[in-house]
Every structure is written in structure tokens, then in C-alpha cells.
Design a protein around this nucleic acid. Sequence first.
DNA 1: TTAGTATATTCGATTTCTCGAATATACGCA
DNA 2: TGCGTATATTCGAGAAATCGAATATACTAA
Lengths: 112, 112
Amino acid sequence: MQSMLREYKASIFQALAHPTRIAILEVLRDGEISARAIQERLGIEQANLSQHLAILRSREIVAHRKEGNQVFYALRNKVLIKVLDLMRQYFQAHLNEAVQMLTEIEAERGAR
Amino acid sequence: MQSMLREYKASIFQALAHPTRIAILEVLRDGEISARAIQERLGIEQANLSQHLAILRSREIVAHRKEGNQVFYALRNKVLIKVLDLMRQYFQAHLNEAVQMLTEIEAERGAR
DNA sequence: TTAGTATATTCGATTTCTCGAATATACGCA
DNA sequence: TGCGTATATTCGAGAAATCGAATATACTAA
């Protein structure tokens, strides 16, 4: 049971572990919105957005509702917004370290 | 800048996206502890633990301190504990869905 | 020095993630 | 019906994550 909880948490974190999906959640925090509108706001490929949405759906992180031609997405639980806010807090606390870390990650990626 | 923040958040979430690493953080919430002690509590391979700790270190999520033979690990920021607590809240809210989801994931894994 | 303990790193195989391209599905409207 | 728009799915290639095995490093104590 303990380990099941951890697997669950890990699967949610895994769903959040992509910049595009974080961007999607940030858009959704303003309320329900169509997939097309998300795509325009983020400026990404349609298929790619749909793939990311599929992941968020599979984790039950977002709800979706069809209306005619389009599909509207919404956050299922505000707790995740709180989590993102905490992360922002965390980020500010670690700003300098974070910049350095990202630079290093970049450097490694470049070196490869 | 906006996108850098998202990359950073994603990299932290990615670091949290593994049951073993979540277990490590849960151990660390009680305070500083040696790697050996973590290993005993979790009952995992030494090398494996060390790899997971390396990931948490690289994200600056944990601090480490050498003392003689051993290395003690500690959480750098309590905010992450808050995040884990929120996730527990989230989990309770979604308990039934989550069980079903995990069952499906299991089923898929089995089918493959 | 040698042996033993604690920890980290490297390696290679396997699995999982991610992307764009192509295609499929579903709906609305002429 | 046929066309256009919105969305989802499938596929294949490349990148990244994961594990255990083997090995390296660093410290302690005899």
C-alpha cells in the first residue's frame, strides 16, 4: 500500500515532468479552454499537444468535454496549482543555484 | 525566462518521478541520515540508491555532508515536503480513480 | 600496509519518452 | 454527399532513464 502510493505520486510527477505539460497546466489555471486555444497560446504542433494532453488525461489530471467540433480541457483538482505555486516559491529560493544548474545541464547537452 | 522556469520545474518533477526517490525524500523528512541507513530502510541495492541520490544531488534537492566513512543526506528545502503532502491530499481525493488507473497500467504492462 | 566498510561511478542492455509525419476520427456546414 | 476544421492515434527514430554488475574511491582500523 505504501509502495502503491509512491508509485502513484511518481506517476503524477512523471506527468508533470515536461515543460510543455507544465505550460498546459498554467494555461488551464485560468479555466476551461479548447485544445485549439491551448495550441495557439503555446505555439506547438497539434499532434504534439494532443499527445501531451493524452498523458494528462491518462493520469486523470485534466477533464475533457466535447462541444461540437471542439474539446475543452480543464484542471480536475486545484491542488496541482498549489503544487506549481510551491514550485515557484522553491524556484525563487534556489534561483542562483538553478541558473547554474541549468547552465551545466546545457553545457552537458552541448558536449554530448 | 518563462520557459526557463518551466524547464526548471520540469527537471525537479522529473527528479521526483520515481518511487524510490520519493521514498528517499520521505525518509529524509525525519532529518539527516546516512546513505547506508537509507539503503537499509528501503531495502534496495547500494549502487541503485547511489544512482538515485546522484540525481537528487544534481537537482540540488538534497544536501550531503561527509563524516568519516559515511555520507549524510538531508533535504535542502522543506517546500518539497509540502509538495509531497499536497500530493497525498490529491491522492486521497482521487483514491478510487487512482486505484483503477494503476490497475489499468498494471494490466497494460502485463499485456505487453 | 592490508582488510573491511561505505559510497560513487561506469558500462551495457532494456525500457520508456518524445517528436514529427502520416493518418484516422468526428463534427458542422454547404 | 463532400469539404473543412478540430482533435486523436499510430508509427518509427532518436534520446533519455533505469537496472544490476563490475569497478573505483575513500576512509577506518588492525
